[in-house]
Design a protein around this nucleic acid. Structure first.
Length: 768
RNA sequence: UCGGGGAUCGUCUAAUGGCAGGACCGCAGACUCUGAAUCUGCUCAUCUAGGUUCGAAUCCUAGUCCCCGAACCA
């Protein structure tokens, strides 16, 4: 409707599902476990799932995945709902809970037992783990694997009835103990947990495992696209197994719509920790003040810090969604925060580390009131407040230098600067205290509007209100705090700096809790919603302004301290004895004499060594080739088979093709004979692979036969140039790379049926 | 070691055989009563090697590197 929707691999998938009619309404879900606070990584997932359902006019459910009562808590349920709302999303229907479906899951488990697809095991944890094998060795079957279904059923019912202690029995799927995917080696479905559940209380003492519960939760809710993070890729196979081997107990039919799991890369962000466990550790060890400490990457922390939902949503939009293992630069987040606050925060004056200034030419008792706009430069937004100015002022210590460095645009002895919103200030003398520190600047004031080299902020010392201000910065000093060693050693000692002497302009005291201000030249500040009291706002800094001056200084001193990424691990590879595909093929030929025979025949037919090797990976392919080679030039057949047919095939075996080797051979013969061009032949081949048919006949019906008529060719080229005036003009203006576009368009127009060289020549002639 | 994923500017992400685009970062300049914002410009990429094609980031082959998976966690 408005801005074009950002596309990613998931929208492509959904578009295809919708187009094919596999899905009529998109239903997604956000399924957090209520065992911790949501963080910015969850925000990415929330924006993805809710964003998809909004864009496709579908639904998005909020579902608490509460299948493990010992780690979960109702407090987390509340905070999660609050955070999702705060981010700006409404879920479809009520808040859902995995525990709502325990009865359904139980019924499905009985189905599996009845069908001999699940059994009760009585091995202990260690035995089960040992029996599972590892990446190198297959697992070994449990002695209880063939327990009769009736017996397992009886045991399972007794489990539910509470007859057994924790850890004594489990329900396992019976799949394959030698499965290459370790997850599929008879995974656990249910375990016994005599624990209090935050919703079902003591109703259950058996609880389903994630891999079993999640697909069923999705299926019960009619989720169409179940989106999770990359580390669940291996689990997808089990997800599918559960749905393929259970029926909906309500309908006794297969699950419909049948959900599918897709995985995307979770957020990794510089200078930030994303592990729930480590975040919990920070809270429990008192390294931060709580889940909502403004330095925490939790939604609660970001909110308290002064980051808005809009900024977070913009961030999610900016970083996109893909399957790459990505690591986002924290500067991107900071950019979003600043951009959002820039529009949102009225401007005010405050001094963090004051330096006294006396206006020697200002009468001692005189007080003026300056009416300054909240939105300088944007009069249409309106609104002003009065800022008092008197003989005694405060300026920022950092804005004065006795010996000004190059490019200094602030105050120095004898220099003049603009006081923001007021007149000019000239420094006449520096007064020191007994210890030699600068105590006071004697200055003269000039109410003129003449331009000055720089502008500094200030507050009247007699009217300004002392109010300590907290400055927050990145919690960690290294970009990847988890990279090596203890992350706690990477804490930034300056992540919280208190400015006890800060002084605010009087109007700021009335700020509503939760309101944002830009303190001119200092950054964006929030009236802390917790610590502020009526008429006594307490501020902290959300984020500083972009500071090219400070950055220049830093760069001059220590080069470019921007990145401290670990260099990519150079891995001492112990020469992997991994069997390559080439070796695998060689072994196949050694083991199968017939394949070796084919190999020799292919070689004898004049095909090069590499192709012959590739063609004899398996018998069906070799036979397919030999059949085809009887009807066309063997090297041509090899090339077309290897380069084009294999690509069209994907993972499917060659035997599933609707054409046989003979047909393929006759197809190649057409190309050999010059009856069809290479480009048109690809279209023809695609059609053959889809629907089968006779190559020569299809060539005619599809109108792909070689265009010999020079006139037709000229006409087509002329039409193409007329339809692409901009590109044509740019080419004529010298952008030769546009030739490919024009040629491509002409080829497309002729459906690839004309000789490329001829089209090229016709194009050159036409373009002059 | 077995299985599953992934490699495009420094970073994130587009381009679905036809102009390697956008954003952040960085750099330079303009403007400025915020060294901000804004505006302009610049630097910068298809993992490697072969092949197919008029044309390859995209298709084929071989290789290299990175990530995930062996909880009665999710």
């Amino acid at each position: 409707m408005s801005a074009p929707r950002r596309s990613n691999f998931l929208t492509d998938l959904i578009d295809a599902d919708l187009a094919a009619g596999r899905v009529v309404k998109v239903v997604t879900r956000f399924p957090p476990e209520p065992n911790g606070y949501l963080h910015i990584g969850h925000a990415k997932s929330i924006c993805l799932n809710f964003g998809l359902s909004r864009d496709y006019r579908g639904d998005c459910h909020l579902r608490l995945d509460d299948t493990n009562p010992v780690t979960e808590d109702v407090d987390y349920v509340d905070s999660i709902q609050h955070d999702v709302h705060w981010l700006g999303f409404e879920w479809s229907g009520p808040t859902r809970f995995a525990s709502d479906y325990f009865e359904t899951m139980y019924a499905c488990a009985e189905q599996l037992i009845r069908d001999g697809k699940a059994y009760i095991d009585d091995q202990n944890v260690e035995e089960i783990r040992a029996g599972r094998g590892d990446f190198t060795r297959p697992g070994v079957a449990s002695p209880r694997r063939d327990r009769p279904a009736a017996e397992s059923m009886e045991l399972f019912r007794q489990m539910r009835a509470g007859k057994f202690a924790d850890g004594t029995l489990v329900l396992r799927a019976r799949i394959d103990m030698a499965h290459p995917n370790v997850i599929m080696r008879d995974p656990l479905l249910y375990r016994i947990r005599h624990a209090h559940h935050h919703r079902t209380e003591n109703q259950w003492c058996i609880y389903p495992m994630y891999d079993y519960a999640h697909p069923l939760e999705d299926a019960v809710e009619g989720i169409t696209h179940s989106i999770c993070t990359l580390e669940f890729e291996s689990n997808r196979e089990l997800y599918d197994w559960v749905l393929d081997n259970t029926l909906n107990p309500q309908t006794n039919a297969q699950w419909s719509p049948r959900p599918h799991q897709y995985e995307f890369a979770r957020l990794a962000l510089g200078f930030t920790l994303m592990s729930k466990r480590k975040l919990l550790q920070l809270v429990q060890e008192g390294l931060v003040s709580g889940w909502d400490d403004p330095r925490m990457p939790t939604i609660a922390g970001l909110r308290r810090r002064g980051v808005t939902p809009e900024a977070l949503r913009e961030f999610a939009d900016l970083i996109g969604v893909a399957k790459n293992n990505s690591f986002v630069d924290v500067a991107k987040l900071e950019y979003c925060i600043r951009q959002d606050l820039e529009q949102r925060a009225p401007r005010a004056l405050a001094v963090l580390k004051p330096l006294k200034v006396e206006l020697t030419n200002w009468p001692a008792d005189k007080v003026e009131s300056l009416e300054l706009p909240w939105w300088p430069g944007e009069p249409e937004r309106g609104g002003t407040r009065n800022v008092p100015i008197s003989r005694q002022l405060l300026i920022e210590q950092e804005d004065f230098a006795e010996v000004p460095p190059a490019d200094w645009k602030r105050l120095a002895p004898g220099w003049t600067v603009r006081l923001y919103g007021a007149g000019l200030l000239r420094c006449d003398a520096v007064v020191r205290d007994s210890s030699g520190e600068i105590a006071l600047l004697k200055c003269s004031y000039d109410a003129t509007t003449a331009p000055a080299a720089g502008t500094i902020h200030w507050v009247s010392a007699t009217h300004g209100v002392p109010s300590p201000v907290r400055l927050y910065d990145r919690l960690f000093r290294s970009e990847q705090p988890e990279a090596q060693g203890d992350f706690r050693e990477q804490l930034n000692p300056d992540s919280l700096v208190l400015c006890p002497d800060a002084v605010l302009e009087p109007a700021l005291l009335q700020a509503a809790p939760g309101s944002h201000f830009q303190f001119v030249r200092l950054g964006y500040f929030l009236a802390d919603p917790v610590d502020s009291k009526p008429g006594a706002a307490a501020f902290h800094r959300t984020i500083g302004l972009r500071d090219t001056w400070a950055k220049a200084g830093r760069a001059a001193h220590d080069g470019r301290p921007q990145r401290d990424r670990q260099p990519a691990k150079v891995q001492a590879k112990p020469a992997a004895p991994k069997k390559s595909r080439a070796e695998w093929r060689a072994e196949a030929r050694a083991a199968q004499p017939e394949l070796a025979l084919c190999y020799q025949r292919i070689l004898d037919a004049g095909v090069d060594l590499e192709s012959a090797d590739l063609l004899t990976a398996d018998l069906p392919t070799a036979h397919f080739f030999l059949l085809a080679a009887a009807h066309a030039l063997p090297p041509s057949v090899a090339r077309w088979l290897l380069n084009d047919l294999l690509g069209a095939l994907g993972d499917k075996p060659i035997t599933e093709l609707p054409i046989d080797g003979t047909t393929f051979g006759r197809f190649v013969a057409l190309v050999d004979a010059g009856s069809v061009t290479g480009a048109a032949a690809k279209t023809l081949l695609a059609h053959l692979c889809q629907h089968g048919g006779d190559p020569a006949q299809l060539l005619e019906t599809l109108g792909l036969a070689r265009v010999e008529d020079a006139g037709a060719l000229q006409t087509a080229v002329g039409e193409v140039l007329a339809s692409l005036p901009a590109e044509t003009a740019r080419y004529r203006a010298g952008e030769t790379k546009l030739f490919g576009v024009l040629l491509g368009a002409a080829m497309k127009k002729l459906r690839g049926a004309a000789d490329a060289a001829a089209v090229r020549q016709a194009l050159i002639d036409k373009l002059g």
